[in-house]
Amino acid sequence: METAFIAISRDFQTYGAVERDGEVIFDRVAGFDQVSEERSRYAPKEFLMKRNENVLILNVENKTAVFGIKSCDLKGFYLMDKQVFGKDPFYTEKREKTLFANFVCSEPCSGGFCSSFGGPVLDQYDLQILREGEKFHVMVSEKYDRYFGEFKKEAGTFYSDFSNRFNSKLEPLPVEGIERRIKWNSELWKEYASACISCGACNFECPTCYCFDLYDDGNERKREWDSCILSGFTSSSAGNIRKDLDERLRQRFYHKFVYFKKSKDTYLCTGCNRCVEDCPVGIDIKEVITYDYNRE
């Protein structure tokens, strides 16, 4: 991997997951051996969509390579692509110039439910890395094949075998058909609203959420990450059409499991569990999937 890393770092600014004060964050790295294989504290969305950025002038971006993103977080970008790629020039410019080298987890993490959405072996990737002992198996997309010219190509079923093993260890949730089961008037939404403090963690930490707000600051026009559970989100002259918090919380789940499925034929969730881990009141998206709506 080090050889490939060196080759890549000639063409790209290299970033990687690294530990600082006990948290895994993303920072510049000079070698593959510096990259942490632990999951980062957050989904590194800001490589493609900064928390706060100027959108008046489209800058030509540097080519950036990010090592150590986990599959669940990377998958978020592929889901986002369906909505914003080619439409949002700022995202698109960065997306085209960023190489992601994702780590496939060898074991399920605590709380994660990625197997419900296909598991950690992705079928779209730039470099997909799976450790086996001291050895790395790497799947390379055509775009970046040149960095691995000298390596042995293996055909075969290593990845699919691994994927099957992984997904049998982490039993998938019954996601299929959730768009038909989920209930508009479920008591869940009011129950969640009674605890929710509108912090936005579920949006800000989600690897698939891409909404932003526009505002002006002096001679700049900027955008900033937004949260659909806030009352000012998508406000019209009559205010937010989803007046109460329970409606806005429901909207978030409906967007992920109903509307996105209908319009893009996939769920807007990767099973990363970040919204659960960072929710200060313990609202669990897994419950939305497994809840028995017929009972009500």
Partner: peptide
Amino acid sequence: VIPTQASGERVIGYSK
């Protein structure tokens, strides 16, 4: 708060 050249600022809760 995590500042990185590529990402601008990013605020995370310090889990420790």
